[in-house]
Amino acid sequence: MVLDFSQFSLRQSKFVNPRTVRLMVSGLQDCYPARFGGIHFINQPWYVEAMMSVIRPFLKEKVKEKIYMHGNNLAALYEHVSRRILPADLGGDAPAYDTQRWADVMISGAS
């Protein structure tokens, strides 16, 4: 999982409250039916790093070991994730990520 915070503003972060964070952590660790090879944060601002330092003690060891903070250093991301599968937006070889296509698939599958 690659989480790109390049479009995430400080203003948006005010909507992330402790209850929401607890639900996200619980969902990721205990409810989501997938195993992640890694959770990679890129372009994260300082307040995301601060939030992660508060959350980290509540994470299971297996999850803690899979979290990587790369900042603006995409070369560090490429050490973990092949460029072959990354979208062009992240310097990869795959086509640019199309959020509209993703939304269309989700909506059509929900009806």
Rank of each mutant, 00 (worst) to 15 (best):
11 R>H: 12
25 V>W: 06
68 Y>F: 15
109 G>M: 11
19 R>W: 09
84 R>K: 13
78 Y>C: 01
36 F>S: 12
44 Q>Y: 03
105 V>P: 02
42 I>R: 03
1 M>S: 10
91 G>K: 00
104 D>L: 11
103 A>I: 15
68 Y>G: 05
90 L>S: 01
20 T>H: 12
47 Y>V: 06
1 M>K: 05
64 K>V: 09
6 S>I: 02
40 H>E: 03
57 P>A: 09
53 S>Q: 11
78 Y>L: 01
59 L>D: 02
101 R>G: 15
85 I>R: 07
99 T>Q: 10
10 L>R: 07
98 D>V: 02
65 E>A: 15
8 F>I: 10
59 L>R: 05
46 W>D: 09
41 F>Y: 13
101 R>N: 11
2 V>P: 00
20 T>V: 15
83 R>D: 00
16 V>G: 02
21 V>R: 06
45 P>K: 01
97 Y>N: 01
69 M>E: 10
74 L>S: 04
98 D>I: 01
92 G>C: 03
20 T>N: 08
20 T>M: 12
77 L>P: 01
71 G>M: 04
108 S>E: 15
15 F>N: 12
79 E>T: 12
102 W>M: 13
16 V>N: 08
21 V>C: 07
52 M>A: 11
90 L>E: 02
103 A>F: 14
29 Q>P: 02
68 Y>P: 03
88 A>Q: 06
109 G>D: 12
52 M>R: 04
68 Y>W: 14
72 N>M: 12
90 L>W: 11
97 Y>M: 08
78 Y>R: 01
56 R>M: 11
16 V>H: 04
79 E>Y: 00
21 V>Y: 01
8 F>N: 01
90 L>A: 01
71 G>V: 07
72 N>I: 10
10 L>W: 10
17 N>M: 08
35 R>W: 08
58 F>V: 07
